[in-house]
Design a protein around this nucleic acid. Structure first.
Length: 263
DNA sequence: GCGACAG
DNA sequence: ATCTTGTCGC
């Protein structure tokens, strides 16, 4: 049985070696297969579930925006979380923390993890599933931000990235039909056997036109969710837009919650 | 040395 | 991520 790992919280002030070492511990503690109570099928048809009596899970979308100081430099991160149940927003919260390190591919959790954990603390509802804007297992050390936060809080989580950090797709992902998925496997850049299934390129939306197309999302397990279920959930939560609804709304709230500038 | 690199 | 005009297509 897994449990929260506050000892693995992304702490500021660590050396690169220490951060990478902590990520290997995160990967060891992570569960890349289904391990949750709720019924994922309920996500696609909230109305039917209400009729059948099954209570829909609380899914929380997480996204960040950044604030600049008077000198015009990014000095704070704002994390916004939007909780949904049965297709409805039930609560929103946000938190702002200072930025300690610059953006470095592979170390995103150490830059944005603190405001995310703080925003989740502000939430009064208990999340059954967390959806992040970034990778989960699709990461050099299999410890993307979705995996990191999921393990620290021991909450099932999924990573939803708009571009691929590492790994290779099994086949071409250009102009995939809506609703389809293509496996993303580990390559030499990932610290795991080549060919390991890390996640899926998922096409939540696509144009009909022959001369224009939409790129897929790169979905991977964060914690306690397998790759197939992760893709199923993202497709079920996409409501006419590329991003699954909880993340799309968190994205909008991250901008909306920015304090007005003082002039 | 060169290339690759979530947000 | 963020800064930003126009432009293509439904």
């Amino acid at each position: 049985m897994t449990q929260p790992r506050p000892d693995l919280e992304p702490t500021p002030g660590l050396s690169r070696e220490e951060m990478e070492g902590m990520q290997r511990d995160i990967a060891d503690a992570a569960v890349f297969e289904d391990d949750f109570e709720f019924d994922p099928a309920v996500l696609s048809s909230p109305l039917e579930s209400a009729a059948s009596g099954a209570d829909p899970p609380t899914v929380v979308g997480v996204d960040q925006s950044f604030l600049t100081n008077d000198a015009g430099e990014q000095d704070r991160a704002l994390s916004a979380v939007v909780a949904m149940r049965g297709g409805e927003v039930v609560e929103r919260a946000h938190a702002i923390t200072s930025l300690e390190i610059p953006y470095v591919p592979g170390l995103l959790a150490f830059r944005e993890g603190r405001p995310i954990l703080a925003a989740l603390e502000e939430l009064s509802v208990e999340p059954d599933l967390l959806l992040f804007d970034g990778s989960g297992r699709i990461h050099f050390r299999e410890a993307g931000i979705a995996t990191h936060v999921g393990v620290v809080r021991d909450v099932p989580s999924i990573g939803v990235a708009k571009s691929l950090l590492c790994g290779t797709s099994t086949e071409d992902t250009e102009n995939l039909p809506e609703g389809s998925r293509v496996p993303i496997e580990a390559d030499s850049r990932v610290e795991v056997s080549d060919g390991t299934l890390l996640g899926y390129a998922v096409q939540t939306r696509q144009y009909d036109s022959p001369n224009r197309h939409i790129n897929p999302l790169y979905v991977s397990p964060g914690h306690r969710v397998g790759p197939e279920t992760a893709a199923d959930v993202v497709l079920a939560l996409a409501a006419g837009y590329k991003l699954p609804e909880p993340v799309r709304l968190a994205d909008a709230y991250a901008t909306e919650a920015k304090p007005a500038r003082e002039d």
